[in-house]
Design a protein around this nucleic acid. Sequence first.
RNA 1: GCGGGUGUGGCGGAAUUGGCAGACGCGCUGGAUUUAGGUUCCAGUGGGCUUAAACCCGUGCAGGUUCGAUUCCUGUCACCCGCACCA
Length: 955
Amino acid sequence: MTELETPFRYDAAFADGIERKWQAWWQESGSFIMRNPGDAGFDASKPKFYVLDMFPYPSGAGLHVGHPVGYIGTDIAARAKRMQGFNVLHPMGWDAFGLPAEQYAVQTGVHPRLTTSSAIETFRKQLKRFGFSYDWSREFATIDPEYVRFTQWIWLQCWNAWYDESARKARPISQLMQQFESGARRVELPNNISKLWSECDASEQRQAIDNMRLTYLGEQLVNWCPKLGTVLANEEVIDGKSERGGFPVMRQPLKQWMFRITKYAQRLLNDLQLVDWPESTRTQQAEWIGRSEGAEIYFAVHAGNDVAAIAPEKLGVFTTRPDTLFGATYMVVAPEHALVKFAVAHANPAAQKELSDYVAASRRRSDIDRQSQSKTKTGVFTGLFAVNPATGANIPIWTADYVLLNYGTGAIMAVPAHDPRDHEFAKAFNLPIRVVVLPPHDAGENKIASASHGGASETEATYVQDGIATASSNAEVSLDGLTTSAAKEKIIAWLDQRSIGKKRVNYRLRDWLFSRQRYWGEPFPVVFAPDGLPYAISESALPVRLPELEDFKPTESDTPRPLLGKAVAWINTTAGAAGVSAADLPPQTPVKREANTMPNWAGSCWYYLRFCDPKNTTRFVSTEAQKYWMGERGVDLYVGGSEHAVLHLLYARFWHKVLFDLGHVTTPEPFAKLFHQGMITSFAYQRADGSLAPADTVQEISDGVFTEKSTGQSVKQVIAKMSKSLKNVVNPDDVIANFGADTFRLYEMSMGPLEASKPWNTRDIAGSFRFLQRAWRLAVDERTGELLLAAKCDAALEKLLHRASKKVGEDIERLAFNTAIATLIEVVNAATRSTTLASTADGGLTRDQLIRFVKLLAPFAPHFAEEIWHKLGCAEALSTASWPTVDTTLLIDDEIELAVQLCGKVKTRLLVPSTADANAIEKMALADPKVIEMLAGKTPKKIIVVPGRLVNIVA
RNA sequence: GCGGGUGUGGCGGAAUUGGCAGACGCGCUGGAUUUAGGUUCCAGUGGGCUUAAACCCGUGCAGGUUCGAUUCCUGUCACCCGCACCA
């Protein structure tokens, strides 16, 4: 048949036509606009379902085929839930502050606002072509002034709050003031001084309050690249050089805004039990928070005989193994530790140089490098000694970069016999190793006769597990013979009694560094008075807007400075002009604005709340909208990449909990159910030497055999990330142009499980396209465009369709879209076969069957389904139709086929009535001729009957 | 280094709770339709040995538990993701 004869054939052009038609119709009729409670047309009788994508950062390159995977998944869920009678909130927006736009501005001078808004245009246009059922009326970008205003407002909530340890929640700072003023709480000042509020001067009072706020200024090390004039992420630093340009990078201290997220460590850990998240993600968060129980122990420090200086205060360490205190033969402090500065100041010239060289060198290494065991341990003796409080021994204090300043106290007691890192270090520097724990069985037999002191070669391996303490006693305390847990308790009690240590819970989680030295981020609503103290800008003066910059090029500098520092006129203002309350500072006071900006996380920490009520100009979200859409447990389905498993998801939970404590939101957790979609990878071709050949230089000469065109060398097909250099990037626009959006949606959902990473294979798209073409031919006459409907209902087909209804519904619920689509394909294939095999025109689907089939297909291929739906004479949108119900009586078979196994191997099959019980099945199996033959007269030892599945005869 | 994960035909994958390994798609083979190609339809397609049946082997590798293991356990190999200023 020629194309002229089949004007209604489902090809790419035809698909394009109907897709654009229905997209326009959905938009005009507002099909997916969701009203809020209180609005006209809102149906309060329906339950709510909030399904959310992790919103994208709109990059200049546009959408790639990896973006839509999650979006198609949430759209299927949203469309199915709508048909199942839910009010569905399904919004989309833009995470629009970010580094790429700023870096582009540095290179070209084009304002990030322009770059960003054109990227948003592109993304929006591309997303709309997929026919997603987003409520576009709720769209916003994190750079919108109204959104920035409330992002700053939330920061002010943290500024105006403190964490009440006894109530285990954040409370307004005004309540702290009341406690101070009433004398219920004393002011804790440095050096263990405590005073009444009334005894403090103004500056002490101010300090007392500032030290309690949820956001505070802290000094942190950053990777500063003087040449680029910018701070770099760890991943942008390679071997102490900047990734771009290869310029030296130094770790420099910088005063920056921090969040006291560590106060929430325990709650962030506990509340992981409240959410329906992938187990791996909850584990990753728990590991990140890293709770460990142990002890803090204080070691007296002295400077050695040849250093005539007064030793500094005691050196505190955190250890999870206080029971090994007797085995602590040396100490290690981080190179940035204050004790190292003291050591440098008091060392002789040669040692001084060695120490400062080491500190300088470690500044150039990243934390990951520093902890990496593959690289040999390095370190330098500080010239200082500590006294092991248990043994009384003088033990040397070293500095080494495998100890990190920001974990624990930045210092450790080294127990080389029982910690692999300490062991390796001790071997490298010939430090003593002292065994103080024995494996339980060895302790009993007393295999190790002497566990006393010795050189580094005493033991080859470290024993890290729990065991029995040995060689651990002094005049006051003995741990010998105790199990590790008993020994821990006993030594902590002893340390506590002597006031040289105490029980402590430590978290790996660190306070959250929230300042960036960038332009393209939210300004902080804070200024600095001439005395250097920060003052908040009042809520009524928000948003604080970014100043315009002519030139975005950073300035070369040896010390870190924010890019916004260039906006001199903006930075220097008065308290009144900036919007500081006159109660805090007189309006004419000259002040400097904060030149740091917030990180990208700020916008993504609360966008899910804004979607509930995006146009609100008086509040970040109305109480009513927040209550309705967040409900009891928050967002009902949140889909995004697993690369966000820790940071974004932890930060958003933290903000949410602060807002919860302060009464602004009503759920303890933001996201009830979380799902990670997998990455779309691509094929690449590996040469014999392991290098990768670009995809366009390779040909497939036979099944699975590939050669490089130019050389004829055989190459191996492997899976790799999509990258420009490998020429294996796929543009979704091209795919849609060739097959249509419905085919694209089906293809990406049928590639495999939503959570798995899967290689894109353009060749396979044909399968999804053919499925739609088949389905179309089944329902529509390609010559006339008329519906093809069976007059009679085929019983087998009806049963199949019924089972498919059940299966598709269940699969959508568990986001197993690949198997749902396979089921739909089976229906179409069976129905097609029925038409070609039928002698009369009776094959195919009846009107009623087609209606049900189209409803099942609607979430996956919405344009296709809508087209047939309207051909069936339905005037309302398919999204308003109800989901097919399942008649359970049609799911039961009269007879079931069971597998019959002999010793676990399938030998034959048996048809039994579905009502037969285990006894009856056993009898039938034993009466089966094949079974009799196989048993050959032997009596079965055991017969296992699994109803509905199999019979296993053990002979 | 620390933390999380994945390995099944030529390829993507299915097997939801320990119960018939390979659903569905791609590719390939044969047939029908067609002047031919394409399209469409029908059938076949894990490997070995076979005319066929039957049988044997088979879920990265080596063990273990079990009547029964892709699934649980131990060890091992390979690959992927995250690591706090990329988003």
